[in-house]
């Protein structure tokens, strides 16, 4: 290609926008390298450490640590609470985003701010709020005690705390989506004689499904990984009110590194799995749109 093209012309061509020169190539690779090193140092290395430490005493030690009854109870508690929190918050998120996107009402912006509150408040404070409300010294403490209901230091407390913290995830994902997609399809369905339920299940829900799934995944990841708020309300009763993140901390403080990192690796796997599902959802979602 270079044959017959004078050097001057080639140089001139190279200065045109969009042409590669040695310099631009070098800058590009340098930038990529810097970001890769950064990623590797800050994200990949810790991830690798988790697995390395977990398997440092061999597979047997790892399995032992995982099969430990306390660990299994922590895993069970984590899954049970997520199984309650995620559906409840999904329903709430759908309802909240629906009414914010479709209706005009007084106090709408206040409502929006309120939904964002859990994101702004530190999780520890969220936990403290729960204790203040439901604890013995709290507003409802005596009433709850009189009726023999235990919330704080029990499963309900953990669920309420997690619910509070993961409140905004589904709603935040759906509100802009619903606002952007507008109301026309629903209105078309209504003029064609569809009732409210049919419009919701046949039109609205399919319309926002990818956003909804994404919100649910984020909500789930946060629920399983929540530490601060749960730590305050759980009371750290071994085998009863310990979720996986709490269990990891306890093991770590007992210098049981293999145990701690084994549980951590499980949690990490859950997170990675969530991220993979999320990526897949995004891909199919964009393809379908």
């Amino acid at each position: 290609m270079a044959i017959g093209v004078p050097l001057a012309v080639r140089e001139e061509l190279a200065t045109r926008p969009g042409r590669d020169t040695l310099f631009t190539v070098a800058v590009r690779w340098l930038l990529i390298a810097v970001s890769l090193v950064f990623l590797a140092g800050l994200l990949l290395a810790p991830l690798a450490t988790v697995f390395a430490t977990a398997f440092s005493h061999g597979l047997r030690a790892y399995l032992n640590a995982v099969m430990d009854p306390d660990t299994r109870s922590a895993i069970r508690l984590t899954l049970v609470s997520a199984a309650v929190v995620v559906p409840v918050n999904t329903l709430f998120g759908l309802a909240a985003s629906w009414c914010i996107a479709k209706f005009e009402f007084r106090g709408k912006s206040f409502f929006l701010t309120l939904i964002d509150l859990p994101l702004a408040v530190s999780p520890v404070i969220s936990g403290m709020l729960m204790v203040l409300l439901f604890g013995l010294q709290g507003w409802f403490g005596h009433w709850l005690q009189d009726h023999n209901i235990s919330i704080i230091f029990a499963l309900p407390g953990i669920i309420i705390a997690e619910m509070f913290v993961t409140f905004p995830y589904v709603a935040r994902e759906l509100i802009p989506l619903m606002q952007q997609l507008g109301n026309d399809e629903e209105e078309a369905a209504i003029t064609m004689g569809a009732g409210a339920w049919m419009t919701f299940f046949r039109v609205t829900l399919p319309k926002v499904r990818w956003g909804l799934i994404y919100g649910v995944i984020l909500c789930n990841a946060r629920t399983m990984g929540e530490f601060g708020a749960v730590s305050v309300v759980s009371g750290h009763i071994r085998g009863l009110t310990i979720t996986m993140p709490l269990h990891i901390e306890i093991l770590y403080e007992q210098y049981d590194f293999v145990g701690a990192f084994a549980v951590a690796s499980l949690l990490t796997l859950l997170a990675v799995l969530t991220l993979i599902i999320k990526t897949l959802v995004e891909r199919t979602g964009y393809k379908r749109r």
Binding site: D184, E185, A188
Partner: peptide, 20 residues
């Protein structure tokens, strides 16, 4: 109610159900 009026409505931006 709109659903009982028996009218056909065509919107400016079509408003087709995009997932169907």
């Amino acid at each position: 109610a709109a659903r009982e009026r028996g009218v056909g409505l065509v919107f400016q931006n079509y408003a087709l159900f995009r997932h169907m």
